[in-house]
Design a protein around this nucleic acid. Sequence first.
DNA 1: CTAGGTGCAAAGCATTTGCATGGGT
DNA 2: ACCCATGCAAATGCTTTGCACCTAG
Lengths: 156, 156
Amino acid sequence: MSVASKTSTKKRFLQFLAHKKLRITSQRQAIADTVFDTDEHFTAEQLLEWSRGRDKSVSRATVYRTLPLLTESGLVREMDFGKDYKFYDPNYAEHPNHNHLICQDCEKIVEFESEKIERIENEITHKLGFSLKSQRLQITGTCEELKKLGACKKKC
Amino acid sequence: MSVASKTSTKKRFLQFLAHKKLRITSQRQAIADTVFDTDEHFTAEQLLEWSRGRDKSVSRATVYRTLPLLTESGLVREMDFGKDYKFYDPNYAEHPNHNHLICQDCEKIVEFESEKIERIENEITHKLGFSLKSQRLQITGTCEELKKLGACKKKC
DNA sequence: CTAGGTGCAAAGCATTTGCATGGGT
DNA sequence: ACCCATGCAAATGCTTTGCACCTAG
């Protein structure tokens, strides 16, 4: 994602705060800077660590109190990959319908989009009498081909 | 699901235990009876409660120690609907590729299958250099049509 | 000024685990 | 008999919260 779009995503978050009449504190700015400066999925603990790198005064409590604001704004999405802790994905602002493919060996995560799947999902949802609000598709696989190419960096 | 198929699913679990040279205790039987006697998704706490209805001697620890065996057998699947606790789905023995549609208002859950989506998932996974092992698709929506028909029983 | 925000530490809560006892095989 | 499985209760680890102080607006 471009630097410009990331910057504007951060701006959108600050606007979200303003709209809810919430204060723009230095801690919230450090957290927002961190979140919208990366494409990576992160945990609360990582977000704390990275944010403290920018502003020592960020506490664990503030990180946990800010995460719901981030997801509520629609710019970050909570993800569950079956671990004890949650992951957060900062790429929903630009790609609200993207999906995840996870390698069960090396835990590499690839994001992808599919208009075809979106269309079928809408069809089915409608046929069952619902209106689609959001969707999550998670595929688990093994990156055998990537292994051959030497592109799977970790445990493969 | 028919009574007969549920009975045979339970048998498959007992065979799974035998195959792993694990003991068939009264507690494990009570838990298996409970799990394979329902089509409903359940939590660890519910499973404990229901199992104790059959056998007072079932403890919370045993339930938590049995759940991994159930998922490992492939007959039950761990689900995450974004709550603090996990749900378990006992319908994977018969429909290993089914998906979930959840009403965000009343939390009603509908299961569905789609060959088309399965095909596209396989295509994409292959194109990205992976072999598909499993998939989870979860759609969140509102059951407006069900509301009109009066079929949405809860908060709608 | 002043209500909302923060850090700290304690609390919560689902899940896991150590240990002594019990029961399949 | 052997030793895996169990119940109990304590421990774990992520997340939440109460409280007194602080600070953005």
